[in-house]
Design a protein around this nucleic acid. Structure first.
Lengths: 67, 67
DNA sequence: GAATAATGTAACATATAAATTGCATTATGG
DNA sequence: CCATAATGCAATTTATATGTTACATTATTC
């Protein structure tokens, strides 16, 4: 479950903490998502996308091996 | 949490049951996602996208009010 | 190089996605 | 019409995303 969140977050000039607050979740969850060890819900993905000004495809669309 | 899954599935010429099997989940979950009453995980969204030959943005990117 | 910010990660609790079973309703075709 | 496929939906269970707390490690800055 790789993704481009870390890059997008840095581009948006946000720390994990800041993004977490903006999105309304905890920093740990951001960390785990960036690390790719788990599988966020769609709603959370969308909220994160809005927060970093990207679309789902830009951040979460990787290739077939989504594991 | 509206989405375009129902349209995409019909375009792909699949029943809920067929899509469910293809994706490896139950028909009920497909139904609930199409209905918009819940919030699938990213991995499931990706798997569904592959199954109906669409991208995340085409199916799950609606507008700001993701609720 | 010490203080602090940013991040990684672990254990446990809670909320909820998804499975399972089952039944009702609505197409669709004979 | 009647049979069957396709779908809607409810109750219960299970798996897991997320919260919470806490501590360790790695930048960064003075």
């Amino acid at each position: 479950m790789k993704n481009n969140l870390k890059v997008a977050r840095v581009q948006a000039n946000l720390t994990q903490q800041e993004l977490a607050v903006k999105v309304g979740i905890t920093r740990q969850t951001i960390s785990l998502i960036e690390k790719g060890t788990y599988n966020p819900t769609l709603k959370l993905c969308l909220t994160i996308c809005y927060a970093v000004n990207k679309t789902l495809d830009e951040i979460f669309w990787i290739d077939k091996e989504c594991e």
